[in-house]
Design a protein around this nucleic acid. Structure first.
Length: 595
RNA sequence: GCGUUCGUAGCUCAGCUGGAUAGAGCGACGGACUUCGAAUCCGUAGGUCGCAGGUUCGAUUCCUGUCGGACGCACCA
């Protein structure tokens, strides 16, 4: 069977509508005069507010003036014109509804396509971003302390966006830039030298990144005891830059502890990277580029020897690129790193997932790369995201300190475990701890992704885990319910095995509501990928789960007396499950067969 | 002060390139389990989309101003 792609059907209808409009326009204009121009882009399609109005709609308002007709009349004429069109039956039909021209999909053809999902692992054939190479940078931790709540949002945004972009057909490369050098690193090293006594994380029974973080905090203790602490840290940095063997040895050891621990947390979230960059290896890059730009007159040198760029013409400031002593600063490194990466893997687009406090920095960075003449610089994108706040109270740690990522997940898992016990599900789920961890991650990830990245958000752990409503666990629960039905079917319950799948059995409005939702998957995916908005997929996941929940309450699957009806519904449940699995995968919400 | 960004129901959030009666969830109130898992479902109440102008046939969406919050404006990263 030929696979129907709803996105394509929509596009083809758009073209038909466009063609018909041109015909009307040509007819309406007096002989000898040019027909008014209507671009294909001027044809907009949207979803009618109620399903009975149609599946997609085209408002006719904007052509009224051009065609000197009222929108309703245009819609009428469009309907007549398109009725006879040689559109294949499977493409549906168009009907005038007031000032709108609405298209009704052919239910049978759509259903047939949807039912294939359950049987075909490669059902997602939509590839709107095919052929594109997209590099996505996220996480970028410092190696002086463990990840915190903000990193969890960063990680999940980056990971989810990567998966969505890949699902949309692009080739994706996830990269992480480890900030493993600098004064802050030296502070934890110094504190360890003073207080560590050569102990290892194992000796203290701490996760290795938490161990390093402990000494970073202890630097404050040192500062209170020793007024020269800051100076000593600076001295350590100088020795590091000089390659002092003793300092390098300590640095390597502590960095490994930090990075190993951080990687464990990344893996816990389900993420990972295709390539790691280390600031200690890249921070020298960029200087040559700046000097080259200076030679070409893109930058200028002040009397003290420092090198600057003037971005005032685009509403930014003057920025320093090289200090008067000739050393690099932050933005210089980023210039170098971007160029270096493009050499590594010639991306078409590079997306930086970085907190919105750095918006200014990235504007400047992108502009500088553009001025240096890099063609790809126009495709650099800063995915800025806001802060994660917690409701004041229990979860908020003392002022000034941040909520640790591992602690947060631990706490969520403990709550989930309690809930499983409270529901009396311990026996059914088997490995309670493993399931609780997955529920915790589903809760956390969905909650973090449902909000648009740009906004600051309030993370309420209790609410995210509440298991009722717009939450990750709700979506997981619907996945588990679907799985449960299919499991029983496999075990021979009901009479579906004796029936055969019939599209006629899935033609009710209730069926159509669910099928239409499943059919809009390619649109949701394309929008999410194009707009770089995992929240679109999150909303879609919830919609699918909610529609399924409504549907299966009134549509018994295995207990229906009609074998054909039963078999058809089993097929539909399979495609619901396949869809939920795919979408949950993109959102890093673990799919659970049982919970 | 300048710049960026956010402001939608009591609370947390959606609202796709401007379009048909602004949607979910929580909370409140009222219903539905001898029925495939009630971690569910159904219903009711609740909004002058911060405010004021403007563009448009049409504005929550675009523009200007204004109020309020967040962030940024280092030879830090």
């Amino acid at each position: 069977m030929e696979i129907l792609d709803m996105t394509d059907i929509k596009k083809r209808w758009k073209e038909r509508v466009h063609a018909a409009l041109l015909e009307i326009a040509a007819q309406a204009s007096p002989a000898g005069t040019a027909a008014p121009e209507i671009g294909l882009d001027a044809v907009v399609a949207e979803f009618p507010p109620k399903p009975e109005l149609g599946d997609i709609g085209f408002p006719m308002f904007s052509y009224a003036k051009l065609l000197r007709k009222n929108p309703a009349a245009i819609a009428q004429e469009m309907e007549k014109r398109l009725a006879g069109a040689s559109a294949e039956a499977s493409e549906g039909s168009a009907k005038a509804v007031g000032p709108y021209l609405n298209v009704f999909f052919d239910r049978g053809a759509t259903s047939a396509e949807i039912l294939m999902r359950g049987e075909d692992a490669g059902w997602n054939a939509s590839r709107p971003m095919a052929g594109r190479k997209v590099m996505i940078e996220f996480s970028c931790p410092n190696t002086n302390k463990p990840l915190h709540l903000g990193h969890l949002r960063n990680n999940i945004l980056g990971e989810s966006l990567s998966r969505i972009t890949a699902a949309a057909g692009a080739e994706v490369r996830k990269v992480n830039l480890i900030n493993d050098r600098g004064i802050h690193i030296c502070k934890s090293m110094l504190a360890y030298q003073v207080y560590g006594g050569g102990r290892s994380p194992e000796d203290e029974g701490l996760k290795s990144d938490h161990f390093v973080g402990k000494y970073y905090v202890m630097f404050n203790t040192l500062k209170a005891e020793d007024p020269t602490a800051e100076a000593r840290a600076q001295e350590l940095l100088r020795r590091w830059e000089a390659g002092d063997p003793e300092v390098m040895e300590l640095w390597k050891t502590m960095n490994k502890w930090a990075v190993d621990g951080i990687k464990t947390t990344d893996a816990r979230q389900g993420g990972g990277f295709d390539q790691y960059y280390f600031e200690s290896l890249t921070y020298m890059k960029g200087k040559d580029e700046v000097l080259d730009g200076l030679k070409r007159g893109i930058f200028y040198r002040e009397e003290d020897g420092s090198v600057w760029v003037n971005l005032e013409d685009i509403g930014l400031d003057r920025k320093v690129l090289l200090r008067k002593d000739g050393t690099s600063i932050y933005i210089t490194q980023d210039i170098g790193t971007a160029i270096y990466r493009h050499g590594d893997w010639p991306f078409e687009q590079l997306i930086y997932v970085v907190a919105s406090e750095q918006q200014y920095h990235f504007k400047a960075l992108f502009e500088i790369l553009k001025r240096l003449g890099y063609e790809w610089a126009k495709n650099l994108y800063h995915l800025a995201y806001g802060l994660v706040n917690l409701p004041s109270g229990r979860m908020k740690t003392r002022e000034g300190t941040v909520v640790d990522a591992d602690d947060m997940i631990d706490e969520l898992a403990a709550l989930a475990e309690k809930e499983i016990a409270a529901k009396g599900r311990d026996a059914s789920v088997g490995d309670v701890k493993a399931v609780a961890e997955k529920v915790a991650l589903g809760a956390l990830h969905y909650y973090l992704l449902q909000t648009s990245p740009t906004k600051d958000m309030l993370y309420d752990p209790e609410q995210s885990l509440s298991f009722t409503g717009n939450t990750g666990p709700y979506i997981q629960y619907m996945g588990a319910r679907a799985s449960s039905i299919l499991r029983k079917y496999e075990q021979g319950e009901g009479n579906a095995a004796a029936g055969k799948i019939s599209l006629d059995k899935l033609s009710s409005d209730a069926d159509w509501a669910l099928i239409r939702r499943l059919a809009s998957f390619p649109e949701a995916l394309e929008l999410a990928a194009r707009a770089k908005e995992p929240s679109v997929m999150a909303a879609y996941a919830h919609d699918v789960a909610a529609d399924f929940s409504t549907w299966y309450r009134d549509n018994p699957v295995l207990t229906s007396p009609d074998p054909d009806l039963s078999a058809s519904r089993v097929a539909l449940v399979k495609s619901v499950k396949a869809t939920l699995q795919a979408v949950c995968g993109m959102l890093c919400i673990p799919f659970l067969e049982v919970m």
